[in-house]
Structure formats: structure tokens, C-alpha cells
Amino acid sequence: MLAQNEIEKIDVILKKYEYNKSSIIAIMQEIQKEYRYLPEAVLAYVAKAIKVSEAKIYGVATFYENFSLEPKGKFVIKVCDGTACHVRKSIPILEEFRKVLNVSASKPTTDDMLFTVETVSCLGACGLAPVCTVNDKVYASMTPEKARELVNQLKEDAANGN
């Protein structure tokens, strides 16, 4: 069950797209931007509001890799493991992020919901390999040491309200 303020927030998004079911992906992108994932109750509300089945909504949510049905941290770290990055040792960088943040492939998000660590097949920045992104900002020529420094900087930013 959604709280009234949640319904109002979702309705603003739905009105922007005129409750048009052909805008389902754009609607879901905005919802994910708001919540950092797609909450089940919100998807059910959207399905009813735009007159599509929940199965259709979940089909879209699970088809596209960028959608998440699981909550993500404030800082989403994506470590590239494409060929160029892999050859230039992206795995030790991934392992360092996971070690420092005490996360794993099966538990990618920290308990405080501050960080999520994921791998991606390619970030399209092969010339800068190895790379990672934090909330879509690219960090080039990464090393395990730079990964540790980046986590410390992000923690400091979060402590300062950024």
C-alpha cells in the first residue's frame, strides 16, 4: 500500500506522460530515478493507472538490464569488465571495491544503502581502460588504490550532505 505522498509523486510522473501506456519505459525510468529502483507497489499502481497488466510492467522491468527491482545505494559503482578493461586488470579493482565496502556479487548493496557495486559488460570508454562509473560519472585508468581512495571520497561527500 502506498502512502498519499507517494501516490502524488507518481501521479506527477504519470501526468507528465499523459498516462500513456506507450510511454511505459520513460515512466519507469523516471520512477527508478526517483527511488533508485522499481518498487513493487509502485509498479502495481502504474499498471493500473496506465491500464496495462502487471505482467506487462514486470516484463519490461525484467527485460531491460538498466531497470532494477532491488533497492540500490546512493552511489552505484559500475565496474567495467569488457575486454579492454578485463585485459587491463578490472577484476582486482572490482575485488577492492567489494572488500572495502563489504559487499559481494550476491549482496551488492551496503547495509546503509550508501553503495551498490555492479559489473557491466562495457561502458564504452575502452581507451580509458580500466574504468568504472559512479552514478554515470566515468573514472578512468582505475587501480585498486584509486578505488579505495574513491570510496573514501564518496563517504566523505555523503557525510557532508552531498
Rank of each mutant, 00 (worst) to 15 (best):
I7N: 01
I7Y: 01
I7Q: 07
E8I: 09
I10Y: 14
D11L: 01
V12F: 06
K16V: 08
Y17F: 15
Y17C: 04
Y19E: 05
Y19F: 15
K21C: 03
S22Y: 13
S22H: 13
S23K: 15
I25E: 14
I25S: 08
E30H: 13
E30I: 10
E30R: 08
I31P: 02
Q32F: 12
Q32G: 10
K33R: 15
E34N: 14
E34A: 09
E34R: 09
P39E: 01
E40G: 00
A41I: 04
V42W: 04
Y45M: 03
K48S: 08
I50S: 03
I50P: 04
I50W: 01
S53P: 02
A55Q: 14
A55D: 14
I57E: 11
Y58T: 03
G59R: 08
F63P: 00
Y64N: 14
Y64F: 15
N66L: 12
F67K: 11
S68D: 07
L69A: 03
E70N: 13
P71Q: 11
K72S: 11
F75H: 04
V76I: 15
C80F: 06
C85A: 04
R88M: 10
K89Q: 10
K89E: 09
S90P: 09
I93A: 02
L94T: 07
L94V: 07
L94W: 06
F97K: 02
N102H: 12
S104V: 00
